[in-house]
Amino acid sequence: MLRRTAQFSKQAARSNHRISFTPDPVKGEAFRSYQEHVVQHAKGTTTLWRNISFLSLPLLAVCAYYVVPKEIHHVEHMEALVKLPDDQWPVEMDYQNMRHRKFFWGDKSLFWGPTNHQISKE
């Protein structure tokens, strides 16, 4: 590998190609110091955003505490609705449960839960 690299550089030196990349130490140092500045700055902001992330965890827990019982109630309500006899079902309007033709997987829409309408008979 090294031998081949040396060969290659000799060959390159002999050829007429101009080396298009000439190192500029000033620019290089500027780039390096900028990167170092970014790293130093990011160290502080990492702590800040870590604290924000972890402080919002309890907030999420409080929200879950508030939402979960309501959601369970909602599910219970919807499941009780299914057990109603047909004549006590909520009135279905003309614009509801539209079927001009079947979906290509069948008669039910994609997220068909136990609580959706009964499919109207053709």
Binding site: T46, W49, S53, L60
Partner: peptide
């Protein structure tokens, strides 16, 4: 509401991850 909070929080954790990457952590 829970979904909204989760997405907002994920924005914060995303920034946390990004800044940690920049800080070589």
């Amino acid at each position: 509401l829970f979904n909204t909070l989760m997405l907002l929080m994920s924005g914060a954790t995303m920034t946390y991850s990004h800044h940690a990457l920049m800080a070589r952590n």
